[in-house]
Design a protein around this nucleic acid. Structure first.
Lengths: 143, 143
DNA sequence: CGATATAAAGATATAAAGGTCTTTTATTAT
DNA sequence: ATAATAAAAGACCTTTATATCTTTATATCG
């Protein structure tokens, strides 16, 4: 559905938002331990998110990653677009190169229902929605 | 969403059903050309489907692949299960190892809506439904 | 039987995803 | 300045998906 990379990215951003109070920054080592994900791999992912401006980062002592003013308000679809691209919502279900309403595969129309459900779900949820769920104890990030 | 392999499998089965009249069998070369897919890769896929009994095959002169009595009635979810497994419907959206109603990730409940839409779509469509669509000229398999 | 056609099987190749390790660069504190 | 710290960058490694090529087994036909 979405790549492992993208799942890590979302979980990382939620963790940053959770622990965020004012100017607190979190190092990649702590993040990786909290989420039980591979440290260096996670590092690359967060570095990429920082380069794209979805989170912030500073080097050096007391540095780390942090939420910037965009982070909490991001829709999941924004994160997915940044990490995986929007292929899930565009590629032909049967893998044909060119599939469109004027040249459809036999699943084209029916699969649109799934696409819509997926898009709605990913567009209606923001990072801060996930943070709220974790804060209420309704769900967890690690494990 | 589904693997390329699985898309090839479905398109191959629909093609077999389309060209099927009585005892006609189709060779892998013809199938690969019709669908513009890699011949030897497609061969392995169809061999696997044959081994699992979703289609039939015979070796030797005038041999090839053909629909057996199960093929036309198969739901897409059956083919997906055989080729990719049911991971799409079961794996945690955020990639956690263990995710369940009693230990959910923050997307667990919301993503269920997508899962349901996907399952309904794949369970309500059979190979013969796709064949009918192509036969009516509503859609195409190759390209 | 022997030749031939075709799926089946196996070995190998290539690309992408996922993951690890090392070196460099920027920042902070002393 | 210098040392320490942590992200950034880059060079690998591993696994899985995708794809190709070769050989083997089996069925058909003359």
């Amino acid at each position: 559905m979405i790549s492992k990379t993208c799942g890590y990215a979302i979980r990382g951003m939620v963790l940053l938002s959770l622990e965020q109070n004012q100017e607190k920054k979190i190092g990649i080592q702590e993040i990786a331990e909290e989420l039980s994900v591979p440290q260096h791999f996670m590092g690359k992912i967060l570095q990429d998110l920082a380069k794209r401006g979805l989170i912030g980062s500073v080097k050096g002592p007391h540095g780390g990653f942090y939420c910037n003013n965009r982070t909490a308000g991001l829709q999941l679809i924004d994160v997915i677009e940044a990490v995986d691209g929007l292929g899930i919502l565009k590629k032909c279900f049967l893998g044909r190169d060119e599939c469109s309403a004027s040249n459809p595969c036999p699943m084209h129309d029916d699969f649109d229902g799934c696409r819509t459900a997926i898009f709605k779900t990913f567009a209606s949820k923001t990072i801060s929605d996930l943070v709220a769920s974790v804060n209420l104890g309704e769900s967890v990030l690690m494990g």
